[in-house]
Amino acid sequence: MAIAVTLIVVIGQMLVRRQRAREEAERTGQPLEPPRSPEEQARDRQTAVVWGCLVVAVPVVLALLYWFTRA
Rank of each mutant, 00 (worst) to 15 (best):
R70T: 10
P34I: 01
P31R: 14
V61M: 01
A42S: 08
V58P: 06
A63W: 12
F68A: 10
A48W: 12
M1S: 15
P38C: 12
A48V: 07
P38I: 03
Q41T: 14
A4E: 13
V58H: 10
W67P: 03
V56P: 12
V50I: 09
R18G: 05
A2Y: 13
R36Q: 14
V55A: 07
Q19D: 04
V5W: 09
R17G: 14
L32C: 11
E24V: 03
R22L: 05
W51H: 10
L32N: 11
M1Y: 13
Y66G: 15
A25E: 04
V16L: 08
T28H: 11
E40Q: 13
A42P: 02
L64W: 03
E23F: 05
L62Y: 00
V61I: 11
V56S: 09
V10Y: 01
I3R: 15
V16P: 11
T6V: 08
F68C: 07
D44W: 01
E39M: 02
W51T: 15
M1R: 15
L15D: 00
R20Q: 14
G52V: 08
A57Y: 09
P34Y: 02
T69S: 06
L64F: 07
I8D: 04
A2G: 15
V58N: 01
V10E: 00
P35D: 05
M14D: 13
E23L: 06
M14P: 06
I8Y: 04
L54C: 14
R22I: 01
E33K: 12
L64M: 07
L64S: 12
Q19R: 06
M1K: 14
L64D: 05
